[in-house]
């Protein structure tokens, strides 16, 4: 049996996903998520106890390079797409009371 998605689980998902949902949206999402997890539950029919999780198809190795100073992207380009900027910096809402 798949995990039961409760209202409390939805509250936690809202925090993790950084989304704001109305009560109606939350209820709809809860139903959809439950249906999806019930479906995904079929994976438990497969015995994978001695199978390693496969993250990369090809072996990935650390790529080393010399630590050389290079020209970086100019600040004004990086700030050009910012919703708000001030004095050459990203402007965010006040975070310290």
């Amino acid at each position: 049996m798949a995990e039961i998605i409760t209202d409390k689980t939805m509250d936690e998902i809202e925090i993790l996903a950084k989304l704001h949902l109305t009560a109606a949206e939350k209820e709809k999402s809860r139903g959809e998520m439950q249906r999806m997890l019930d479906y995904v539950d079929m994976l438990n029919r497969l015995d994978t106890s001695d199978v390693e999780p496969l993250t990369h198809i090809f072996p990935v190795e650390n790529v080393f390079r010399d630590d050389e100073v290079e020209e970086s992207t100019p600040k004004e380009q990086l700030l050009a797409n910012a919703p708000q900027e001030k004095d050459g910096q990203f402007l965010v809402p006040k975070t310290i009371g």
């Binding site: 995990e3 998605i5 689980t9 936690e12 998902i13 993790l16 996903a17 998520m33 997890l37 995904v40 994976l43 438990n44 497969l46 994978t48 199978v51 390693e52 999780p53 496969l54 993250t55």
Partner: peptide
């Protein structure tokens, strides 16, 4: 967010990666 969250990561995300290997 759910399948990566604490308590569900093994049951869903890692399980899917194991099936991917199969």
């Amino acid at each position: 967010s759910f399948v990566l969250s604490s308590g569900y990561y093994d049951a869903y995300y890692l399980k899917a990666l194991r099936v991917k290997a199969l």
